[in-house]
C-alpha cells in the first residue's frame, strides 16, 4: 500500500514559502513581449485604415474625415495584428492590460493630429469592398 505519496510535497510546501504572487499588493508579472493594450501615437498616424481592415474582431475604426482613431477595448482581442500591419509604426502594444469597467463602453477615441506633409496624395488601397463578400 502506497499512501501518503503526496505528503512529502505537502510538507515541503507547508514549511517553505508559498508560491503566491501577492497581486495586487505586488505588481503583476509582465514581460516585455506581453500584450496588454494597443496604444497609438496620434501624431504619426496617417489614417490609412490598414489596422481597421486587418483587425480580426473589427475593434478599430478609423475615420478619415473626422480624423479619429477609435478602438473598442471591449472588442479588442489584443492580437497584435494592427501593430504588425501599421505601415508607419504608429501603433504599439503596451504591456499593461486595459482596466475592468463597470459600464459597457470600451470605446476610446483618439484624435489624430498627424498633418500630411506637402506631397501629392496617393490613391487609396484597392480592396475596399471585399468585406461584404
Amino acid at each position: 500500500m502506497a499512501f501518503f505519496e503526496m505528503a512529502k510535497t505537502a510538507i515541503r510546501s507547508f514549511v517553505g514559502k508559498p508560491a503566491t504572487r501577492r497581486y495586487p499588493f505586488v505588481p503583476g508579472k509582465v514581460t516585455p513581449l506581453s500584450r496588454g493594450h494597443v496604444t497609438i501615437d496620434v501624431s504619426s498616424c496617417i489614417s490609412c485604415g490598414m489596422c481597421m481592415k486587418k483587425c480580426p474582431s473589427e475593434a478599430i475604426c478609423v475615420n478619415k474625415e473626422e480624423k479619429t482613431w477609435i478602438i473598442d477595448r471591449l472588442r479588442c482581442i489584443v492580437c497584435n495584428s494592427c501593430v504588425e500591419v501599421c505601415p508607419v509604426h504608429c501603433l504599439t502594444m503596451d504591456t499593461v492590460y486595459s482596466p475592468a469597467v463597470t459600464t459597457h463602453s470600451g470605446l476610446e477615441v483618439f484624435y489624430i493630429t498627424y498633418v500630411k506633409p506637402e506631397r501629392p496624395p496617393k490613391a487609396d488601397s484597392v480592396d475596399e469592398n471585399k468585406e461584404q463578400a
Binding site: 514581460t31 513581449l33 500584450r35 497584435n80 504588425e84
Partner: peptide, 20 residues
Amino acid sequence: EETTGGRVIQGSCKVGGVRR
C-alpha cells in the same frame, strides 16, 4: 508569455512562418 507575449493565446504563428 516570455517568448510569445500571451499566456494562453499565444498568437505567434502566421501563414508563412512565425511572428516572433
